[in-house]
Design a protein around this nucleic acid. Structure first.
Lengths: 142, 142
DNA sequence: GTGTTTGCAAAGTGTTTGCAATTTA
DNA sequence: TAAATTGCAAACACTTTGCAAACAC
């Protein structure tokens, strides 16, 4: 019974890993479950490491870093740079922008449609724009 | 003669430092001259440190960091985050956006007027947008 | 079994800090 | 000379790496 309840949700995670040709190891499954089995999230390696520990699964920090990068290369995650010194990973890989909450040090997605460009430059010959990133820094209003 | 040629340009740098109540020390003058006596620039601490060494002026890396932060607090510089792991400082403190040249790892200003928002969200009650930052990542087109 | 993955501890990078010695006003 | 500034070396935070042991298929 309990087994069933706990096990079932992993099937989708296993499928996800298989699809990107990553072996569904205990560690990767635990991390993937935390990341992909629920609403979109923004995490740092340390955050995710702590979270997985609290779920009583031993995953080393090195493995968390490895996995985050593997997931990113596989297109399951996107890296977001807001803060020099820590790397955020976003489970939402669609084109979208971010609020950076300065007080909490966390990211929120800017809902589609809340922001729009009137005009955008075009890339010069031989170059391309690999990403257009908007970050709105949100602070307390004093 | 030589003295005069070398000294004169410092006067504006001294003035600039005095204006923000930073003592015009040898180190700060050298750094300020490199930063402000010419067109706008985007530098990292390491870049500036190397540059000042090449000008045969001894300034420790710690002092470069200190000075960059002091200049930033004084409003003479602006920090730009594009790359987790290194901090860029921009001598252009006006509101503007950046191209990040992925190959070279360097920043370029997006000229005013090349980019424009059609619509922007407004900050919720009690919060404010302290900065709206656009970074266009430019890569080789293959 | 074979190749992949993990965990550890060590190394790496960019940055900050504590404090004695130096410099500025 | 009093207060600010500097330089060094050590400490830091985050991330990556090398490699032997453990694991997945």
């Amino acid at each position: 019974m309990l087994d069933k309840v706990k096990k079932r949700p992993f099937s989708s995670v296993i499928k996800k890993l298989r699809q990107v040709e990553l072996r569904p190891t205990r560690q990767r499954m635990a991390l993937a479950k935390l990341l992909f089995d629920g609403p979109n999230r923004h995490v740092t390696a340390e955050m995710l490491h702590e979270e997985v520990q609290q779920a009583n699964i031993n995953v080393s920090l090195a493995t968390v870093y490895n996995s985050l990068h593997q997931f990113t290369s596989a297109g399951l995650l996107r890296e977001v740079v807001v803060d020099s010194g820590r790397t955020y990973f976003d489970t939402n890989t669609t084109d979208h922008h971010h609020y950076f909450m300065e007080k909490e040090g966390c990211l929120k997605d800017i809902p589609e449609g809340e922001i729009n460009f009137d005009m955008l430059p075009t890339a010069p010959e031989g170059k391309k724009f690999s990403r257009v990133e908007v970050i709105i820094h949100v602070a307390e209003d004093n």
